[in-house]
């Protein structure tokens, strides 16, 4: 009386989804493990003097980031075979973390491409991130794996959090120049976010917190400025 095929079809579909989920899960777990290595290397930036940054942090981090790319390739291949919005919540956090760490790596002066010259204080664009990871970005038409602009912006906010902490630790390391660069950088990004009308989601909530990062680095610059510790050649030193 009742068509059993309906249930078999559903079971097939449920099983298929479970397989996709497992396949993605394995890749994302691997990506996360590799990511943690990159993270723990980059965490040393807080305790490494500028002179040793390249050898102690940037070089090893570059290797670690390159290691993650195979997982991104795998993820891109599997994810592109399925509707993006059905599964993207499975890798969002990991991809945001990866983008954040590449942004931090780039900001510190690291460069994935051999031979390109380091530009400390540089913000990698979403297109450059896409180029490094070899995946499309901000894809609007094709339903394929990509780095969404929201993911890039979440990563950017994570970068600001990290830089505010770095500003203080730089002073501890005796570097009085970096805090003013960080202050200017955070204020520029803050100005960009302020102009947006975001809807009431997590990006909105996190972007509302940038003003506290601005205040933190302004306090560092204040402390240095008050004590005449900002190197004279610095145009933002307030002298």
């Amino acid at each position: 009386m009742i068509d059993r095929g309906i249930f078999e079809d559903l079971q097939a579909r449920v099983d298929e989804d479970a397989e996709v989920r497992d396949e993605i899960r394995v890749i994302v777990d691997t990506l996360e493990k590799k990511e943690k290595i990159a993270q723990s290397i980059l965490a040393k930036a807080h305790s490494t003097p500028l002179s040793q940054l390249s050898s102690q942090v940037l070089e090893p981090a570059k290797g670690a980031i390159q290691q993650t790319m195979a997982s991104v390739d795998d993820l891109s291949a599997v994810a592109s075979a399925h509707p993006y919005y059905k599964w993207n919540n499975m890798w969002q956090r990991q991809v945001q973390d990866l983008v954040f760490h590449i942004l931090l790596f780039g900001w510190l002066g690291g460069s994935i491409q051999d031979g390109s010259q380091p530009r400390p204080g540089y913000l990698l664009t979403i297109d450059e991130i896409g180029g490094i990871l070899k995946v499309p970005v901000n894809e609007k038409q094709k339903d394929t794996f990509h780095i969404a602009i929201e993911e890039y912006l979440h990563a950017l906010i994570s970068l600001l959090d990290e830089l505010a902490r770095l500003a203080r630790n730089s002073v501890t390391l005796g570097d009085y120049r970096r805090p003013t660069h960080i202050a200017q950088f955070i204020k520029d990004i803050h100005a960009g976010f302020q102009i947006l009308n975001l809807k009431n989601d997590s990006l909105r909530r996190r972007s509302d917190g940038i003003k506290y990062r601005v205040k933190e680095v302004e306090d560092v610059v204040y402390d240095l400025s008050l004590r005449n510790l900002i190197p004279r050649d610095d145009p933002t030193s307030g002298q």
Binding site: R168, V171, T172, L229
Partner: peptide
């Protein structure tokens, strides 16, 4: 960890005077 970082930061900044 960050509270200790901040305390150390204060130590350094003030020490520079």
């Amino acid at each position: 960890v960050e509270k200790v970082e901040n305390a150390t930061y204060g130590l350094v900044v003030r020490g520079r005077e």
